[in-house]
Simulated assay, not measured.
Amino acid sequence: MGLKGRGLLDMDPTKQTFPHRTLSVKLWPPSQSTRLMLVERMTKNLITPSIISRKYGLLSKEEAQEDAKEIEESAFAVADQHYQKEPDGDGSSAVQVYAKESSKLMLEVLKRGPRMKEEGEAVAAEKSAAVHADVFDISGGERAFISADEAEDLLKPLKELGNTYTKICFSNRSFGLDAAGVAVSILSSIKGQLTEVDLSDFVAGRPESEALEVMNIFFGPRGF
């Protein structure tokens, strides 16, 4: 008994062996609470006045929350896809992708500005288009002589089925004989819907004889 006891006491501790354990550290995926914290942090950043918001507008809290959730979900998807390519890694690179993608998308939202502003501008543009949808105007730019081919191309919208043009402005465009023939043919097809036609200066720069013939094409027996 004594020998056994002495043997245990005399055992060299440096020669003792223990099972080897491998420490595994995983940084991906983040917990749900971590993801929610990121959404909250981004929401706060999106509604905080900044140089960017002064230029593009400040988001409302509701819109910021919605955008923050979309940003987080998108960033998570990109980072998770990255992680799938290196499943044996600790996930640190995926975390970096997650952070970078979140920052990039948040900056895009800040520069986009409030959606309500975008929608308001779109509505205003639609209203403006509706107001001018009945006006066909080719008078812009420098005064120019136009050929038959150019007239055919310029007046193409007037030939579209269902167009709603009621006012036409050809001023500042000088029509020759061939171009006049094209124009009158097209105008005749929609004359029932026209209420106003501005032809001021439409023979400017033409020789008198040609100008008279062009006017006869427009307003003579075969005119529109």
Rank of each mutant, 00 (worst) to 15 (best):
R112G: 15
G5I: 07
V123I: 15
M37E: 13
M37Y: 08
R112A: 09
K104C: 00
E150I: 15
R173W: 03
P13Y: 05
K127V: 11
N172K: 11
S93R: 14
S200C: 02
S24T: 15
G220I: 06
D80T: 03
E213Y: 02
L107F: 06
P221E: 12
E63W: 08
R35G: 09
E108M: 11
L3N: 04
I52R: 04
V197E: 02
D153K: 11
L158P: 09
K85D: 07
V97N: 08
K117R: 08
F18R: 12
I52A: 15
D201M: 03
R21H: 01
P49R: 06
E101I: 01
H20V: 10
I71H: 00
L3G: 03
P207T: 05
H132G: 00
G7Q: 15
T14C: 06
A180T: 04
A125G: 12
K100Y: 12
V203C: 10
M42G: 00
K85F: 06
E86G: 05
S188L: 08
Y98G: 03
R115G: 02
S188Q: 11
D134P: 00
T34M: 09
K26C: 08
A64S: 05
L155T: 08
D10M: 11
E40L: 09
E72L: 05
L36K: 12
T43D: 03
G220C: 11
S188P: 04
D137W: 12
A79K: 02
L9C: 06
V131E: 12
R112C: 07
A64D: 04
V25W: 08
A204E: 14
L3I: 00
L187Y: 01
F218K: 07
R115Y: 08
M11T: 10
G89E: 05
R41E: 14
I190Y: 03
K111F: 10
Q32H: 04
S189D: 15
S209Y: 00
G140D: 14
A124Q: 12
V203F: 05
F136I: 10
F175N: 08
I138K: 06
E66G: 02
F224M: 14
P29S: 05
E63C: 11
